[in-house]
Amino acid sequence: MKLVFFILLFTSFEQKDEVYIWFPNDVGVVQTCNGKDAEILIEITTESNKKIKVHSFNLDKSNFTIYKDDEAFKEIDTLILTKKNPIKLKVRYKISLENSKKFTFKTNVKKYLNNQVNIFYGQHIITTKDIRESKEQFINITESCQDSIMVFFPYGGTISSATLYNDSSSTKKIYKSVSYDLMEEGNSITFTKADLGRYFVDFGSCHWGGEFWLTIK
């Protein structure tokens, strides 16, 4: 009996000590022009109170400037991540469609020694966090060398949907909409320069949903 209790107690402590780190797998960049200035935002978070070392930042064979809290630092510097101190990065660079396709970094946590964020051009990716916080989305399509961009929505459940309206009144009319199954392709809406305007978005899924504004300019 004592042995069983010890195993359970040890397992409990082991699970509590397990470290998880969150960061986006993909980010979108509206610009599609070689040599055009671009900027990506990457937030790295954890629920652990341990001090996690984050270091060795790199942008796929491209020259870049990296900022934390709007202060530039060297890519060889080491940052400390904890639950109370998430790392919010801003990366500025000139686009090279041959390179500039992935941002990488390392940590001292075994499961997260090497990490990669994929960069997709001509796209804007809306996250679950954006919707839960009702964060208005601003997309400057005029910065793109293409005639259209794709706006991607998250997978909220078995079935998810996003509906755009011209306003938020009770008599609102649908402007564009999309519905998709879990992990099914097609979780995006294409916008052209003819779609400039401000739209009210209603996102829904099996267990949760949210509303926010989307501005195409």
Rank of each mutant, 00 (worst) to 15 (best):
I141L: 08
E47F: 04
F13S: 10
I95K: 03
F5C: 04
D167P: 02
P154V: 03
S168L: 04
S96D: 15
T65D: 10
N114Y: 04
F6N: 06
L9M: 08
I131D: 00
V178M: 04
S96V: 10
N58Y: 14
N99M: 07
F120A: 03
E39A: 12
F191G: 01
E184S: 11
S168K: 05
I126E: 07
G157T: 11
K102R: 13
Q116A: 10
D60H: 14
Y112K: 13
I80P: 03
W208I: 11
V19E: 02
I139D: 04
S188H: 09
K217P: 14
Y67V: 07
M150L: 09
T45K: 10
T128F: 15
Y112R: 09
G157P: 00
V109G: 02
Y155C: 04
F13D: 08
Y155W: 15
G28N: 02
S177Q: 12
G156Y: 03
K61I: 11
Y20W: 10
K106Q: 15
I76T: 12
N63E: 11
V29M: 12
M150K: 15
I95E: 06
N108C: 07
T171P: 09
V29F: 06
S148W: 08
Q123N: 09
Q137H: 11
I126A: 02
L41G: 06
S148F: 13
T104H: 03
D77L: 00
I66T: 02
L113H: 09
K217R: 03
L182C: 10
N63H: 07
